[in-house]
Amino acid sequence: MSFRLIRALVAAALALPLLAACGGGGKDSVVVYNAQHEELIDAVAKAFTKKTGIKVELRNASDLELANQLVTEGKRSPADVFLTENSPAMALVQSKGLFDTLDAATLDRIPAAFRPADGSWVGFAARSTVLVYNKDQVKQSDLPASLMDLAKPAWKGKVSFSPTGADFQAIVAGVLALKGEAATKAWLEGLKANGKTYDGNNVVLKSVNNGDVATGIVYHYYWYRDQEEAGDNSDDSALHFFGKQDPGAFLSVSGAGVLKNGKHQADARTFVDYLTSEAGQKIIADSYALEYTLNPAVQLGRSVPPLASLQAPPVGISDLDSQKVIELMQDANLL
C-alpha cells in the first residue's frame, strides 16, 4: 500500500511543473500585477483576450505589497502591467522610475486630474471616501462636517476603519497631502484612541450595519455593491459624503501603468489602452464594482451620485507619500 502511495506522490510531484505550465498560462501572456478587485479585472481581461487574442495572467495581491514587490524585484520583475486600487502605490513605483511613459492616445482619454503630469501611468477608475453609519445609532444631524472631526473625543468608540488596507492608507495619504504632517499625526492618534479596527472594508461595512460600531471610514462602492446584492450588510446603514473639498471627500484614483522592464511591452500598452477605452470603461461601469469610471465618455450612472457632484479636494495625484503614511501610522501604533 505504502509503495503505491509513494509512487503516486512521486508521480504527482513530477506532474506538478507540467500542471503549473498549463494552468498558469504560457510565456506569451501579459503578466499583470493586480491590486484591483480580482473579479473586476478578470472580467476586463477576459473581454480583452476575446477581442485581441492576447492572453492575460493576473497576480493578485494588495497595492503596497505589489508595489514593494516591484521595487524589490526591479529589473528582474516578470510584471508587464501594474494595476492598483489607489494612487499611493502607483506613486511609489513611479518614484523609482519603473514605469514607461504611456501612449498619448491612452493618456488623452482621461482628464488630467486623474493622471500624473509625466504620463507614466493613468487613472482608470476612482472611489470616493465616505462615512458609513448605522441609522439607529447616529442621527443625520449628528454626522461630522469633516473627516478630521472623527479624531475628537466625542467620537470615542464610535468609529471604525481597516488600517492594514491600502484603501485607508490612501485616505491617510490624502489627509497628509491636504493638512500636513502635524495635523495628520494628531488625527491618527485621535483615531487610534477613538476607533475600532477591522481587517477589510467589507468587515467594517458589516460591523457598522450590525451595530457593532456606529460609523466606519470606507469607500462608497462597498455599500452600493451590497445594496445591489441583497443588502444584508448595508440595509441598516447609510452613507455620508463629506463634500466641500473636505479630506473626507478624498477621491482615490486606481491607476494603471506599463513597466519598463516587462517582456511584453506592446501587449501591455494595448491592455492599458483597452482599460481606458470606452469598451474597457464600459465593462467597469456595468460591472458589480460600482467604481467611478474616468473616461468622460462612460458614466457610472446607477444609484451612485455622479462624479462631478462629489466636491473632492484637490490632491496632486503623484504627491501621495505612502512611505510617510506607513511611518505615521506606525508612530500612531496603528500598524
Binding site: E65, T164, Y198
Partner: peptide, 25 residues
C-alpha cells in the same frame, strides 16, 4: 485571529507585509 479581528503578532506581521512588504518593523 485575522477573521476574529483579534490583533496578535501574526496578524500584525501580515499587516506590515501588506503595507510595507519586507519592512524592518
Amino acid at each position: 485571529l485575522q477573521l476574529l479581528g483579534y490583533p496578535t503578532f501574526t496578524t500584525a506581521i501580515y499587516g506590515q507585509y501588506r503595507s510595507a512588504f519586507a519592512s524592518n518593523a
